[in-house]
Amino acid sequence: MHLLVIDLWFILGKATLIACIIGLSFFVAMYTTLAERKVAGWLQDRHGPNRAGPFGIFQPLADGGKLFFKEEIIPLASNKFLFLLGPGLAMVTSLVTSTVIPWAAPVTTATGTFPVQVADVDMGILIVFSVVSVGVYGIMIGGWASNNKFSLIAAIRGASQMVSYELPMGLALIAVIFMTGSLKMSEIVSHQAEHGINFLYQPLGFIIFFICALAECNRTPFDLPEAENELNFGYHQEYSSMKLGFYLFAEYINMFVSAAVMATLYFGGYDIPFVNEASWGLESWIMSAISFGILMIKIAVILFVFIWIRWTIPRFRYDQLMNLGWKKLIPLALINMIISAAVMLWLKK
């Protein structure tokens, strides 16, 4: 009689993978903050932070340390529990998104094949969507619990922005999904390895998806929830110390994950585009390591474009933001979807 039937090795393996991915997310997010400041400097003919360690590589640690030692202020009239829950929720949702991303080619050993992916579920990309849609609560709860009118307005502004831009994002994605015929991330990648990257077939879809990703991550030109200079500091106005750090950090993790999602959906994920690397005949773990590096390079390029856009384009006004989302992007995404569907039907005949 077994009291508990659990595949211990399976759970242990997945737990290790999850720990690695969370560590990776934190690490990349940390250095994205540095890259942000560095690139901002370069684009403005400055050097960027370069005092903490060579080329400023310890700057993120210094920033984190500073945030830790800041005074922790919880407003007296705030809702204490929800005030604490908000940043935690924002952090958790941003970390959970990375579960379905295939990080590298599967490793084959004598005992079997191990996909470098936490969960290769049938729903795949929809999981990302569900978690992103839940991510609104971190903002809303934080803004409401601060008991500050401006925070509340900013939170509602942010939440309605995120809800609005989920729609064109999903519509742009549908074209990719019916080209692949599956929602599974691993199949989307393998389809692209066979037929070429999706970006070649769906350039408009990618642009729509990218714009929506900017809005979902609250990045410029859509950073209205935290428009520091004209609309207060946004929903985290009352936050200080590491709770503020959580909000800011969650944003960078969101950036990282959305870059990973875009790289997977439109640029072939861990696959090297236009190269048949299976013919090299390398060991599977070496192949896996190389493919991981390839995915990271793609992510880095997308992150650079994120930052580059931030230091180029000023913020949209709120009505412009809503007009762009509802009146331009949704019709465009619908047209893109219909055209791709028609072309696919025509090709199949």
Binding site: V39, W42, L43, Q44, D45, R46, H47, N50, I207, W308, I309, W311, T312, I313, K328
Partner: peptide, 26 residues
């Protein structure tokens, strides 16, 4: 009116500054 072209132009300007001499005196 579709913004995209002008955004590309602006991004071209910013990227060109990446390779310019830095004005900072350390």
């Amino acid at each position: 009116s579709i913004y995209l072209w002008n955004i590309m132009k602006g991004m071209g300007i910013t990227i060109s500054h990446l390779f310019k001499k830095k004005a900072t005196i350390q």
